[in-house]
C-alpha cells in the first residue's frame, strides 16, 4: 500500500491527487512497521531483546542513505524512474525475505 501510494504520487501531476496518494502511502507505512516490531518482540527472549531491537534499528537508520541515493538517482535517471526504483526496490527486499525463509513466512 505504501509502494502503491508512492507510485501513484510519482504519476500524479495534480496537487490534490498527489495529496491523496501521499495519504495512502502514509496509511501503508505503519501497516508494515507495527507487525515487524511485534514479530521481533515475540520471537526474542527478554535477555536478548534490547540487542535485537538495536540491530533492527540499524536498517531504519539507513533512511539517510536512502535520501542520499534518491537525490543521486534523480540526477542520473530522472524523477519518475527514481520513484519506481524506490517502490520496486523495497518490494524486492521484502519479497526476498519472504521467499528465503519458511519460518519467516509462517511467523
Amino acid at each position: 500500500m505504501f509502494g502503491l501510494g508512492l507510485a501513484g504520487f510519482g504519476l500524479s501531476d495534480t496537487y490534490w491527487l498527489s495529496l491523496v496518494f501521499l495519504f495512502v502511502a502514509g496509511i501503508g507505512f505503519p501497516l508494515w512497521v507495527t507487525p515487524v516490531v511485534t514479530l521481533l518482540q515475540d520471537h526474542s527472549v527478554p535477555e536478548y531483546r534490547g540487542r535485537v531491537m538495536a540491530v533492527y534499528t540499524i536498517p531504519l537508520q539507513g533512511v539517510s542513505i536512502g535520501w542520499m541515493l534518491g537525490g543521486v538517482l534523480m540526477d542520473l535517471i530522472g524523477n519518475y524512474p527514481t520513484v519506481l526504483v524506490s517502490v520496486f526496490g523495497g518490494w524486492v527486499v521484502g519479497g526476498v525475505a519472504l521467499v528465503a525463509s519458511r519460518d519467516f513466512r509462517r511467523a
Binding site: P59, S64, G66, L69, V87, G89, G90, V93, G94, S101
Partner: peptide
Amino acid sequence: WTIFMAFSTIFFAM
C-alpha cells in the same frame, strides 16, 4: 529475515 526486510526502508526513503 524480519531485520533483513527492514532494509527496504532504505529504498522507500529514496
